[in-house]
């Protein structure tokens, strides 16, 4: 279980997050919505340990972030908003590159299986020649190498076609339900959020999201 209690983040005098709290249980897909600049990416980066909060507590499966950073990082798979891939390498080379640096020693077949599972079949194609959807899939596949328990995805389906979007969302749901993983992801696609998320957190004080989600009968978490 991921527990976030009263975290705050400031950039100079600008307060981005103020006493934000949330939790995710195993097997849950949780959505995070809000206007641009509401702090969704900052929040995700804090949970992913890319940056630290000014105050507050974070715990993953009973381990505090403060004193178990290395162990916590092994349990997290973070998919940044930007496509974080070596464009000059092939899909195979990208997978092998990070498999070699990972904690879990995966064989080439195991790496390929992750990609196939995500409907990414262009194994020997150079990343720069892949479509946007395929790049997004590889972006997620790389984060799955260490079999993380908590998956944090920052707009993983932005700018891609409906088929790839559906495949990705379906895959994430499957990961949560079948492998009891915790998934937190941000998106601006409300249809996707309402279809695949068990609960949704709204960042910022915007009644639009609240009204929309209530109308769709989605459980809204209190942050």
């Amino acid at each position: 279980m991921l527990e976030v209690k009263n975290i705050s983040k400031k950039y100079r005098s600008h307060e981005i997050l103020q006493n934000v709290s949330m939790h995710i249980a195993r097997g849950e897909v949780v959505g995070l919505v809000g206007q641009n600049g509401a702090g969704k990416s900052t929040f995700l980066q804090i949970v992913a340990t890319v940056m630290s909060a000014n105050s507050g507590d974070l715990m993953l499966d009973g381990l505090s972030y403060n004193c178990n950073l290395k162990a916590i990082r092994r349990q997290i798979g973070y998919v940044p908003q930007e496509v974080a891939l070596w464009e000059q390498l092939t899909v195979r080379e990208n997978m092998l590159f990070f498999a070699k640096l990972s904690w879990t020693k995966l064989s080439e077949e195991q790496c390929r299986a992750i990609c196939v599972n995500m409907q990414l079949h262009e194994w020997d194609k150079q990343v720069s020649k892949l479509s946007g959807g395929m790049k997004r899939k590889l972006n997620i596949a790389l984060s799955l190498i260490d079999d993380p328990q908590l998956l944090l995805l920052d707009e993983p389906t932005v700018g891609i076609d409906l088929k790839s979007k559906t495949e990705i969302a379906h895959f994430l749901t499957q990961q949560a339900k079948e492998h009891q993983k915790m998934i937190l992801y941000t998106s601006h696609d409300m249809k996707e959020i309402t279809t695949y998320c068990d609960r949704v957190y709204i960042m910022g004080e915007d009644s639009f999201y609240y009204d929309y989600l209530q109308e769709k009968g989605i459980t809204i978490g209190k942050m």
């Binding site: 890319v50 990082r73 997290i76 798979g77 930007e82 496509v83 640096l101 990972s102 260490d146 993380p148």
Partner: peptide, 18 residues
Amino acid sequence: NHPVVVRWLQSKISYITY
């Protein structure tokens, strides 16, 4: 400055070692 650097967070060796 490549976005890929963030992946070293979940790697066995840190980016600084690399």
